[in-house]
């Protein structure tokens, strides 16, 4: 892994929880669907080995809930959805992220000049 990738990984690690909560806010999703969705967003690509443990932790913390649903193909799937606590947490993290990213973007722009 080169330095650029290493930095990207560290930044992504801190923001992955927010990304997953945001994805689940739109609609309930199953594990691999979350991995594939993030994989389609450059910069947020994450392995199943990272996302599944994160989902377990979110469920353990009461931020997400699970529900089994029949699948049109293959076995039933475990769908993850946001709980009330999860929605509140998403709102808090979203606000903090926007504040941070706006401030940082402004700072980097100033330095660029």
């Amino acid at each position: 892994m080169n330095h650029m990738e290493d930095v990207a990984t560290q930044l992504r690690k801190g923001s992955l929880e927010l990304a997953v909560l945001a994805l689940l806010a739109a609609q309930p999703r199953y594990g691999i669907e979350i991995v594939e969705d993030l994989g389609s967003r450059p910069g947020l690509e994450s392995a199943a080995g990272t996302i599944y443990p994160l989902l377990t932790r979110l469920r353990n913390s009461g931020l997400v809930d699970t529900q089994w649903r029949e699948s049109p193909v293959g076995p039933p799937r475990k769908y993850y959805s946001l709980t009330k606590i999860g929605r509140d947490q998403l709102a808090v993290q979203r606000e903090a992220w926007i504040k941070l990213s706006t401030a940082l973007a402004k700072l980097l722009k100033e330095v660029e000049r």
Binding site: I32, A47, A48, R77
Partner: peptide, 22 residues
Amino acid sequence: DDLRDALREAAEAVDDAIKAAG
């Protein structure tokens, strides 16, 4: 349990699912 469930969802493609889990 979550890991076992996630791998079971892969149905026929268990090899790929295990590979993806790392």
